[in-house]
Amino acid sequence: MRLKESKEAFQIHRLAKSRRFLGILFVVGMIYGFVSYDLVHKKKQRQGRLEVHLDSTSSNASHLSSFEQNYIMQGNVSWSGELQCPSQGTEIGSSFLRLKNFMEDGEWREEGAFNIFLTETSCSSRPNYRAWCSVESMAHENPEGLVWYVMTSPEVDLQDGLVKQLLGRHKNLRLVTANLSEIFDGTPLQELYHSGAWNSDTKWPAANLSDMLRLAIVWLAGGFYSDTDVICISPLTGLRNVIGLAEYNLVNGANFHFDRHHPMLEYFMVHLNDHFNPYVWGENGPRTVSAVLRDVCKEDVLFQDLECEGVRILSHAAFNPVQPNGRVLLFQRTQEKNIRKRFPYSYAIHFWNRMTHSQPVFKNTDSVYDLAAASFCPISRRAATQNSPYY
C-alpha cells in the first residue's frame, strides 16, 4: 500500500516538474519572440524610416496637421541610400507637371545670374498656399533674379490652377526637381546624406534634409536662400555674402546669400556633418551656423555688422523684424497698412512657421500677414481664399 502511494506521489511530482519545465520554456519562448520582434522592427525603422512617417499623399492628407505637412515625409517614400519620392502623374492627361532636373538646367550657371533658392523637402507635389506665397513674393520682388523652387517631388500638382498662373505671371520663376545624390556628392555632406542619419529616429526628417540641402545647393550654384515661411517685401539682388541675426547672439539660416564655393559654406557643411543631431530642433540650422560663425570670427557674441571671412551679419530687422517671442503680432491688425513703411529696414518678414503653423490668416483683417500677402503674393492669396475666408 505504501509502495503504491509512493509511486503515485512520484508520478505526481514528476508531472508537476514537467509542467514547470514546459512553463519555463513557454516564458523563454515568449521573451525571445518579443526581443526578436523588437530588434527586427527597430532595424526596419532604421532602414526605412521614411516609409513609417506617412502613407498618404499630400493631396489627400487633410488628417495631418500643418506642422506635419511641412516637416515629415509625405507619400509612399522609400529610402535605400537615395531618396525616392512617389510619382502621381505618370499617365497621359494627368494633372501633374513633370519637373525638370535642376542639375540639367544650365541657367543657374550663367555668369551674372542672381539665383534665389527655396526648397520643398517632404516629397509633397502640392505645397501649401503659404509656401507658394513665399515663392511668389520672391519672384514678385526680384524680377531680375532667377527664382528656383527646388522640389524633392518629381512633379507638381496642377489641379487648382495656381501653378500655371504663377508661371504665366512670373517669367523668372523656375520649378525643378532635385537629384539629391548629384547635389550632395562631392560636398562635405555627402557621407551624412547617404548614411540616412538625417532620416533615422527623428521627428522631422524633411526639416533635417532642408538644413542640408540649402547649404549644398548654394555652395554648388551661389545665390540667396530663403525658407518658405518668409514673405519678401523688397528686392534682394543687391545683397552679397550676408546672413541675418534672429535673436541675441543667434543668426538664422532661414535667409542668407553666399557666392558659389564660399569658404563659410564649407565650414557650415563640415560642422553639420561632424555634429549632426536629429533629436533637437534647430540644432542643425541656426545653432550650427551660429556656432561656426562664433568660431571662425573668434567672437563670443555675434552682433550687427560683424564682418569676417568676407561675410557680413545683418541686423535682425533685415529678415526677422518680428522676433519669435512677438510672433503673435504678425497675425493681428496693424495700424500701418503699408508693409514697407511698417518694416522700413526689412528685405523680408519671417513668420516662424514652426510656432505659427496652426494660426489662421483671415482675409481682409489688416493683419501683417494678410497685408503682406495682398501686396507681394496676390495670386497665391487669391487662390487660398477662393473657397475659404482664411488660409
Rank of each mutant, 00 (worst) to 15 (best):
M1C: 06
K4H: 02
K7T: 08
F10S: 10
L15D: 02
A16H: 06
R20T: 12
G23S: 04
F34V: 14
S36V: 15
K42A: 15
K43A: 15
R46M: 14
R46F: 09
H53T: 14
L54Y: 13
H63C: 11
L64P: 05
Y71F: 09
M73W: 13
M73G: 10
M73C: 05
W79L: 05
P86R: 02
S87Q: 06
Q88G: 14
G89Y: 03
T90W: 07
G93P: 00
S94T: 12
L97G: 10
M103F: 03
R109F: 06
E110V: 08
E110A: 11
N115A: 12
N115V: 13
I116R: 00
L118K: 09
T121Q: 10
P127F: 03
Y129E: 15
A131Q: 07
V135D: 00
A139G: 11
H140M: 12
H140E: 02
P143Y: 10
E144P: 05
E144D: 06
L146V: 14
V147Q: 01
Y149M: 14
Y149Q: 07
V150Y: 06
T152H: 05
P154K: 02
E155P: 00
E155C: 03
L162G: 05
V163F: 05
K164N: 15
K164D: 15
K164S: 15
L166F: 07
L167S: 12
L167Y: 06
N172E: 05
R174F: 08
L175Y: 00
A178L: 03
N179V: 01
I183N: 03
F184R: 04
D185F: 05
T187Y: 04
L192E: 12
Y193Q: 01
S200M: 15
S200K: 11
K203I: 08
W204A: 15
R214T: 03
L220G: 05
G222S: 05
I233G: 03
T237G: 09
L245I: 11
Y248W: 11
N249A: 13
N249T: 07
V251S: 00
N252R: 04
G253E: 03
M264Y: 02
L265Y: 00
F268G: 02
H271L: 06
L272C: 06
L272F: 05
H275N: 13
Y279W: 13
V280P: 08
G282H: 13
E283C: 14
G285A: 09
T288W: 01
T288S: 14
V289R: 04
V289G: 00
R294D: 12
D295W: 04
E299I: 08
L302W: 08
D305V: 01
G310F: 10
G310I: 07
V311C: 01
R312T: 10
S315V: 03
A317N: 12
A318N: 03
V322E: 06
N325C: 11
N325S: 06
R327A: 12
L329K: 10
F331C: 02
Q332W: 14
K337T: 15
R342I: 10
F343W: 04
Y345L: 14
Y345D: 15
I349T: 09
W352M: 01
N353S: 07
S358I: 13
P360Y: 04
F362P: 02
A372H: 08
A372E: 01
S375A: 15
F376H: 00
A384Q: 07
P389L: 02
Y391V: 03
